[in-house]
Amino acid sequence: MLVLGFESSCDETGVAMVETQGTGVPVLLSHALYSQIEMHQAFGGVVPELASRDHIRRVLPLTQEVLAGAGKSLQEVDVVAFTRGPGLAGALLVGAGVACAMAAALGKPVLGVHHLEGHLLSPFLSADPPEFPFVALLVSGGHTQLMRVDGVGRYELLGETIDDAAGEAFDKSAKLMGLAYPGGPLLARMAEKGNPKAYALPRPLLHSGNLDFSFAGLKTAVLVQSQKMVAAAGVPTFEALPEQARWDLAASTQAAIVDVLVKKSLTALKNSGLSRLVVAGGVGANRELRAQLNAECAKRKVRVHYPEMHLCTDNGAMIAMAAAMRLQSGLQQATQSYAFDVKPRWPLHSL
């Protein structure tokens, strides 16, 4: 079975094709991705209307690229999948509209996929796929959640953010430091040169007794600390501070975020009694997070699985994979009803 998947939930247009092989893990045949980061940088963040228009421009050329890469024709596609939510409503409608129109023209079934389920199952695209059950740490730009995963569609929410997600903490802190959008990766690169113990920043909810997260207070602490540094140095802006001071604040900020993510993940593993951890979402590409999780899990003989680095951000491969795995498990059937809707807000644990 060939599944063609479309991802258009925010600022990346992704298209991919996977093929199921009996009961084994589906195989990625081809994928293509276009990032809108350069376009949105001028505005300091994602502009929803511009994102939607750009998806329209990119989706069909990317589809042609994927078909050529897979060596398949459009007529050979068995199921067309798309991101139904969560995400930006206008952006989601582009992928949904294209997928349903294409499926209707081909007379093939269509399937709407949960964006976070795509992230959750994306490590199955790696060379070292996990096995069920496992604890999952979902850390994307707008979501931070811990889940117990017993199988496809069998998800139990263990904890989630009550305000800013980890990705937002990275990006908003970076913006306070004068870094360009998206600032999270830039902050992480600065942190490599800094001292993570230079500034004592808070670890919100670290000792809360539950598995929920909160990063809004950390962002405020970064703002206050940066203002103190500027005042003490007698310079007009944070960007005018010496490089080492800026690197140290970046490293201290990253350390606070990573510390919370690692400690809460280890607690989830201990409470669940499971010995396998899956980390997915854009923040899962953070090198410091991976290094600390690898070290701590090795001490506890816990296996850790990640998506390939190039599949950590939003992409069509994870949507095609999630659709294929749902169909393979018999959990859901694709439909030839081509009326569609999107779900900008859609809790994963409601599946």
Rank of each mutant, 00 (worst) to 15 (best):
G316R: 01
R246V: 01
V283F: 05
A285T: 06
H114E: 06
L289A: 09
V80E: 09
S265A: 09
P129F: 05
D150R: 15
V139D: 01
L249Q: 03
A320R: 03
V283W: 09
D259H: 12
T23S: 14
V304Y: 07
M190K: 01
M17H: 10
P204R: 05
N271P: 04
L33G: 00
E239K: 15
H40P: 08
G97D: 10
Y155P: 08
P48M: 09
F238C: 00
H119G: 06
D150K: 12
F340E: 04
S8N: 10
A256D: 07
P133W: 07
Y306N: 02
G273W: 01
R53N: 05
V230P: 01
Q244V: 09
G183S: 11
K343W: 11
G71E: 00
Q145K: 09
S126M: 02
L261V: 05
R154T: 13
K263E: 15
V79N: 06
D54Q: 14
S329D: 07
T237V: 10
V230K: 12
L218H: 11
P204D: 02
H349T: 14
D259S: 13
D212I: 03
M102A: 14
G14A: 00
V283M: 11
R326K: 15
V135G: 01
F170H: 10
K193C: 13
A285W: 02
V304R: 04
A32Q: 10
H115L: 09
G5T: 06
R303D: 12
L93Y: 09
G22W: 10
L50E: 09
V230S: 01
L111V: 13
P61T: 01
L205C: 00
P123F: 09
G159E: 08
Q244A: 14
N271L: 15
